[in-house]
Nucleic acid binder design. Structure first.
Length: 295
DNA sequence: GTTGAGCGTT
């Protein structure tokens, strides 16, 4: 009975699924079983695993036989330290018992519903269960499993995923990604400019706006003190190649510079992103004039 | 050796 990962779900006639979050990536069902089984009859424990690596995704589903036991487990195990990690136990949204749960609260067979007066101290980041009723919390769930999975498989094959992407408008969620490690991953596969398609000729010139030598920008009449070095970016009008709003330190890569570095500079805090309104590419993306039909 | 903020399989 220690092995839960058998073929498919067991007899799920009257089971209540609990979602266990924040578990370590190495926590297995066998590790959770004794914990949850203490508070009730655990029917099954399922831990979704990554399709690629096969590792656990960091959450598990525990099926209880009775709702009251499940409720008790939620109340008792939620916020409990497991494997050095504070797990989060709550009722799952989907499952055979989903219809019996009303907004995260059990309607029947529940002597003491998940009252909100759980005096158990837990992490502050813990969100209220009531958030589920709105389902609006998904606004942040841009990718929970298939997103990164599909993207990964595409990455491994080819960049063709962009080609098919034009069939329908680009995914709005794709550009708003701000994950930590994922950001790093996609940055490699993602081109700096999406217009760098085969349609455009070799555009990657050796940086025409690349500022020559800062010393060259010295203006004879501008510098009263020849012994004093002139600030490179202080060039008045001599340098037309450089962009005035460009980063002050062209030698440093934008991603290499630390956030505090910009802060130190002063007013560089303003993001050099596109338009503040969102993605009005009108400034850099002129309307299709004549040719360049995407068909 | 690792991330994380997350709802599921035969």
């Amino acid at each position: 009975m220690s092995h839960f990962g058998r073929s498919g779900p067991p007899d799920i006639s009257d089971t209540y699924s609990l979602l266990v979050l924040n578990i370590t990536f190495r926590t297995t069902a066998d590790d959770l079983f004794p914990l949850f089984d203490k508070y009730g009859k655990v029917v099954d424990i399922f831990i979704p695993k990554d399709r690629r690596t096969g590792d656990s995704r960091g959450f598990a589903f525990v099926r209880y036989k009775y709702a009251d036991e499940a409720s008790k487990a939620v109340d008792r195990l939620d916020g409990r330290m497991v494997d050095g990690r504070e797990i989060t136990v709550q009722f799952a949204k989907y499952g055979p018992n989903a219809e019996r749960i009303h907004k995260g609260r059990i309607i029947e067979t529940s002597p003491k519903p998940i009252s909100t007066h759980r005096s158990r101290s837990r992490s502050p980041r813990k969100r209220h269960r009531d958030d589920y009723r709105d389902r609006d919390y998904r606004r942040r769930s841009r990718s929970r499993s298939y997103d990164r999975y599909e993207r990964d498989r595409y990455r491994g094959r080819d960049r063709d995923y962009r080609r098919r992407s034009r069939s329908h408008s680009a995914s709005p969620d794709y550009k708003s990604r701000r994950r930590g490690r994922y950001d790093d991953e996609r940055r490699h596969s993602r081109s700096p400019s999406r217009s760098v398609d085969s349609r455009s000729p070799a555009r990657h010139s050796p940086s025409p706006r690349r500022s020559p030598s800062p010393k060259k920008s010295i203006s004879p009449r501008r510098s009263p003190s020849p012994k004093k070095s002139i600030s490179p970016r202080r060039s008045p009008s001599r340098k037309k190649s450089i962009s005035p709003r460009r980063s002050p330190s062209p030698r440093k890569s934008p991603r290499d510079e630390s956030p505090d570095y910009r802060s130190r500079d002063g007013r560089s805090a303003s993001p050099r992103s596109v338009s503040p309104r969102g993605r009005a590419d009108s400034s850099r993306s002129p309307p299709p004039r004549n040719s360049n039909s995407d068909e």
